[in-house]
Design a protein around this nucleic acid. Sequence first.
DNA 1: TTGTATGCGTTATCAC
DNA 2: GTGATAACGCATACAA
Lengths: 349, 349
Amino acid sequence: MNRPRVRLLDVAMRAGVSPAAASMALNGRSAGNLAPTTRDRILAAAAELDYTPDSVAQSLRRRKTNVLGLVTDAIASSPFAGRLLAGAMESARTRSYVLVIVDANREPDNEVIAIRELTRRRVDGLVYATMGLQHLPVAPHTSLPLVLANCWSDQPVPAVIPDDDRAGDTAAAYLTGLGHQRVAMITGLVGSAGQRRTRAFTERSRDAGVDPLVHVIDADWSVTAGYHAAWTLLTDDTGAPRPAAQRPTAVWGVNDRVATGVVLAALRLGLEIPRDLSVLGMDDQEELADCLVPALTTLALPHRELGEAAVSRLLDLLDNSGLPVPADPQRLECPLVERASTAPPPSAG
Amino acid sequence: MNRPRVRLLDVAMRAGVSPAAASMALNGRSAGNLAPTTRDRILAAAAELDYTPDSVAQSLRRRKTNVLGLVTDAIASSPFAGRLLAGAMESARTRSYVLVIVDANREPDNEVIAIRELTRRRVDGLVYATMGLQHLPVAPHTSLPLVLANCWSDQPVPAVIPDDDRAGDTAAAYLTGLGHQRVAMITGLVGSAGQRRTRAFTERSRDAGVDPLVHVIDADWSVTAGYHAAWTLLTDDTGAPRPAAQRPTAVWGVNDRVATGVVLAALRLGLEIPRDLSVLGMDDQEELADCLVPALTTLALPHRELGEAAVSRLLDLLDNSGLPVPADPQRLECPLVERASTAPPPSAG
DNA sequence: TTGTATGCGTTATCAC
DNA sequence: GTGATAACGCATACAA
């Protein structure tokens, strides 16, 4: 079963040529150097022997490993990790790269160690990805080509992040487009994501002629926070449900957890979703948004695309290191994922 | 910034010795070969120059890359992927290995291609991990050392999977231990996981003197399925809630999604959790179990440990290829994660 | 058009 | 105890 590896030399001998000739043929450099007939003989020999070049030797010689390093701040604890990694791997694969992934486990020291190790392993470039959107006061320090995913820094290093402005636009356009006139947003204002979403949502709603009620919660964008916020929105001072005419017909939660809280509160209050209340989420959190009853309409955080774009960007950089680094991060659209928790308002029905 | 790499030769020259001597010193093979004084001189030189050995060259020479391949059937679409990967990476890191992860994206062809590619890259061993527990009719074909994670095959290849029998035991012991006398399980019987959980739960409950009501749902272990099952359990023929004495005081859902459905149904019926009904889940699904209100008590699928154990096992195999392969998969405990959805029954209160 | 010689950075063998 | 020398598998510059 474990027969000896077949080397380039073996192929060359079988074809009756020198290793150099075999190398050229197999690397497509035969034009102008090799007679087509010998080239074919070499290729045939390689095929017969089932030759596969040894990457390690190639790497040493070419000074290029075709390996990318991907270091993350915390892979374990995020429901989005898988998507980003899958996207990154996919991009790498199509250009015959492979990924070595290292989790820093929320320890900055580990990041430094990881980068050192990957450098020693001679990876061709680095992606640094955070699982939550983050501004980096200082980008990871390395002499290798670097791209940031889901985070950005003020230094001139290329970055790819979600477009929260457009997300706010999309949400507002969708809800007002459905005909909703009394619209609320439950949001937090810490961090650029919440701020951008909120501002864009507000402005775009006003453009459409509706003035949204913005209910601000604190830093904790949790189910519980959403639940309580919704409770406030949907009941009066005595704790009784407000009459239909006095409550919003649609609510946008700043993320799916908050939106889940809204659904739970509505359920508790005997409100039917989406008949009595449309609920829109954000993030398309795996196994939450599409698990609810009814399934949550939401805007997807483009994590797969983030991974794809970051790697793609990095490989472009490797191919052409002269590429200019744009001052601003590249922003990726958050597409609407329409499910069952939204509908036109009763009046518009 | 991008100063030339410092090679072993540089260190040797600086210390005034041969590269061979430098190599010995740096690899700890100086005993009996090098004078302690020259050894120290070499080490000092290396430190001053900040020398780090080139892994690629080492790999070529040692015929060992210290890289492990991890191929998964579908990384993107699972909320557990992160945990397993993090565990695997952690295990690898502590033994100075690194992981190349490839996602086959549910395509068997891709698995073959991935294994071929990883073999070409000279990884030292392979882990094959599935995101859902699976029996493999035939293990992935490779001449490399291989360990299975979260799946197993009849061929003699080492495997690590969760211990569903013990999970059933734990669930039964926990619920009966709390004092519940009328206990139900909502389960599916397709696949070994559901069967084992159900059988163990039933037997262990009976040992404790309670005969559980087993409600079988179909292949789809979804929130919706759990919702409907719970509805059946908690209402009578007319759709009205059963009186307290006629309904279970505790329900175990075969997974967290099903348990979520139970919570939703109970909420809808005006039942208070855990006062009127204890709900126990299974899997500890990230961002679902701990997002509910109240947070779900559940049994954790040990995905991190699965990753850790698989890599650890593989490395043991590499260190000592004579290790015997046990006939049965190694089974890892699913620990109870106690949160807020369970309590003693009203009568026992 | 083909083949030869050399080097990538490291380690292991074997004379000294 | 120490230090040349060869080899790992491949690719390239250059000579034939």
